[in-house]
Nucleic acid binder design. Sequence first.
DNA 1: GTGCTCGGACTTTCAAATAC
DNA 2: TATTTGAAAGTCCGAGCACA
Length: 473
Amino acid sequence: MASTSMPPQLSPVKQEPHVKQESLNQSPALSQAYHPQQQSIYHSQQAPAYPASSQYAPQQQQQQQHQSYYNINRHIMAMSMQHNGNGNHNNHSGANSTAGSAAATPIMASAQLDPNGLSSAPSSPTLNGLQYHNNGGNSHFGSNTNSGSTTPYIPHPSYPQPSSYSNNNSSNNYYNSSPPYSSHQQPSQGQQQQHHGNSTPGSNGSHLQFSSTAPSPMRQHPQQPPSQQYSSLVPPLSESQYAQYHQLLGSSAFSSSQSTPFHSNHSTPYSSMPGSPTHEYQQLGDSSLTQKPKRRQVKNACVNCQKACKKCDEGRPCARCIKYGLTDTCVDSTRKIRKKGIKRGPYKRRAPPSQVGSSASASTTPTMRNAVPTGMQGYMSEPVTALSSPTQSHMLPFTSTAGSTTTMSHMAAPLDFGYDTSGGPAGYALHTQRMEPSYNTPSYANGYSGSSLYTQAPNYGLGNAAGGSSNMP
DNA sequence: GTGCTCGGACTTTCAAATAC
DNA sequence: TATTTGAAAGTCCGAGCACA
């Protein structure tokens, strides 16, 4: 519903998702402050620009300077705050925070909760840079305290004041000295529409408490001046540190203790917490320490991250766009419409339960066939000869070991789970979408009524009938 | 050492096919 | 109608390269 008013000129942004021509000289954001009430999401028709080595003009440096340099300590603290056992994530409000609960973890134990709104001298370097305050205004990490406090927080004029992107007056200004990281930031009217009914809980403003939860740490740009507030105590992360950070989180004990169902409805604070271990990586059960954690993707990357093939987050502007000063152009990318009416080949038939049982008992080799979950019956079960079908490409890795009974037997059910040719034409690939000649040239000219999510046909602007998806060969 | 590009691995979505 | 399937559509990791 949102994109119905999308001006056509926006389409070039999407033109070449993998064209990395992000102009280094055109950055509408560089010389502008971020004015969420004024900026138009369609404001820039220019290609989003990445600041080049010399792009950090003084103004932007100033802007960047006021961004918090997120760091592991903060992140851990945030997790600790969640983890302090009461499960009340409203507890980010200062009123509910107590030293006792804060001390639930060693990290938090060093947090100085100052009821006077003053920053107590940190007793531990761990939190030296956190500027944790409890001034009754529920502000944290650089309070927006209006007590004329001694906090070093300086509200940045370019960013909305915390109250403007807090959903309630209690203003849980977690990290409120930072740019509007919140995916729940109250956007301008246009921005709200941009979310085109996004079901992502992070974008509908319905979740109040973690609207500004701990983001991923941002790495300080090498040319940025050190933060006056934090830099001395909170060194920025290098690229490698940043990567290590994510690696660590991906397999840390924090993660494993907070695992949530991957297909959760994002209602759990842990999983919905941007930057949290479980948000970024879904653990794979108890074997998380040895297995690579599952990658977690955002539902809709912004156009800039999409172009750069880089990780985005649900906030708008996202962390990466903030980092590069692309806040003006940080909007959700338009998603293609899935074509309907495409005939698909006959699916594998599920095996009758009786057959499964008999097959297990009939197994002549000590394999793990019995261990095949009911829901997995038939999966990977096609005859190896059928794997030549291009539609079964995801099974190809198993073809190499098809001859090895000991290797594959737990995957390959011996029954005729494969192509069922009795009820229809044989030949799996004959019915695949790939065979549709029009596949690469989707036409929306017939007035796609579409779902509420996609009310306007994306114009990829390729101007090339053979183009279609840029990812297509 | 750091940033950028981009191929392709990986994940998510959701309509078609199938089961009940 | 409910569930499963599986390809489309998407995200973003990480290797390679360029540059300061």
